Amino acid sequence: MKLVIGNRRYSSWSLRGWLAAKLADIPFEEVMIPLDTPEFTAAKADASLMPSGTVPVLWDGNVAVWESLAIIDWLADRVGRDVFWPKDNAARALARSIAAEMHAGFANLRRHCPMNTGRTYPSFPLTQEVERDIGRIDALWREALHGFGGEGGPFLFGAFGAADIMYAPVVTRFRTYDVLLSDTSAAYVNAVLAHPLMQDWYAGADAEDWRLDRIEY
């Protein structure tokens, strides 16, 4: 397998695809293409590398899979759905719902607070629209953690899985922009950031030389 990603420091979607591939525990080649570079522009036009013109892209032999949820589903079919999703029907329904809501929503948070693992901005000004997104995410996390978390680990449904993967870039944003959360959600942020895979991702991001001025405030 081969996984095409952008900069670890900035590429939120790449983080999701990478975490999914790591959780599946199938060896893969990592291809990093820095965002906003001539190399990335050329790669976007190369269907043999980036069929959708976006990252991440998972190549499994000659099969290309893009979009985070599609990559998770592809890998779950390969290694077993229980690796990614809760076994309990009610928990699995909620996990899929909040993962899909993350995939499709929270545009204001994404736009106003781009991912940047290398910086923190205390007291960063947030719009009312961003605050609403934050409040909704906090409520979703508390619902999952109070209803299904705890057993098997400190994550949304116990063990680290697909829902945590989908919200991992949000976790980095909340740390970067010093977002105030409920105690339950703040503890969850700390647990995700302490996960060995997240620590690995951050170490790789810290080693990068590329910087995007449009995100480095």
Rank of each mutant, 00 (worst) to 15 (best):
M1V: 12
M1N: 07
K2A: 11
K2C: 06
L3H: 04
V4Q: 00
N7C: 08
N7T: 01
N7E: 00
R9K: 13
S11T: 05
S12Y: 02
W13C: 12
G17R: 01
W18T: 03
L19S: 11
A20G: 07
K22F: 00
K22P: 00
D25F: 08
D25Q: 14
I26C: 06
I26L: 15
P27A: 12
P27N: 07
F28H: 10
E29D: 15
I33E: 01
L35M: 08
P38R: 09
F40D: 00
A42C: 09
A42V: 08
D46V: 02
M50D: 04
S52T: 15
G53R: 07
G53A: 11
G53I: 07
V55P: 01
V55C: 11
V55E: 01
P56N: 03
A64E: 07
A64Y: 08
V65K: 01
S68V: 04
L69F: 03
A70S: 14
I71C: 04
I72T: 12
W74Y: 15
A76W: 12
A76E: 14
A76K: 14
D77H: 12
G80T: 09
R81A: 14
D82P: 09
W85I: 05
P86S: 05
P86L: 01
D88W: 04
N89I: 13
A93M: 09
A93K: 08
S97N: 10
E101H: 10
G105N: 11
G105K: 11
F106S: 04
F106L: 03
A107Y: 00
N108Y: 09
R111Q: 10
R111Y: 00
H112S: 14
C113H: 01
P114A: 04
M115T: 14
M115Y: 02
M115N: 06
N116E: 13
G118Y: 03
Q128D: 15
Q128L: 10
E131V: 03
D133I: 09
I134V: 15
D138Q: 10
A139E: 11
A139L: 07
W141M: 14
R142I: 09
E143R: 15
A144F: 07
A144G: 09
G147R: 08
F148P: 01
G150N: 10
E151D: 13
E151Q: 14
P154W: 05
F157V: 04
F157D: 03
F157K: 03
F157I: 06
A159T: 12
F160Q: 02
F160S: 03
G161K: 03
A162M: 06
A163M: 00
A163W: 00
I165A: 05
M166P: 05
Y167S: 02
A168S: 15
P169W: 08
P169E: 11
T172A: 09
T172S: 13
T176N: 05
D178C: 09
D178L: 11
L181A: 05
S182I: 11
S182R: 05
T184I: 15
T184M: 06
S185P: 13
A186V: 00
A187Q: 14
A194F: 11
L197W: 14
Q199M: 14
Q199T: 15
W201M: 01
W201I: 04
Y202M: 12
Y202E: 13
G204T: 08
A205Q: 08
A205S: 15
D206M: 14
D209C: 07
W210M: 06
R211F: 05
L212V: 06
L212H: 08
R214D: 11
I215W: 13
E216L: 13
Y217G: 12
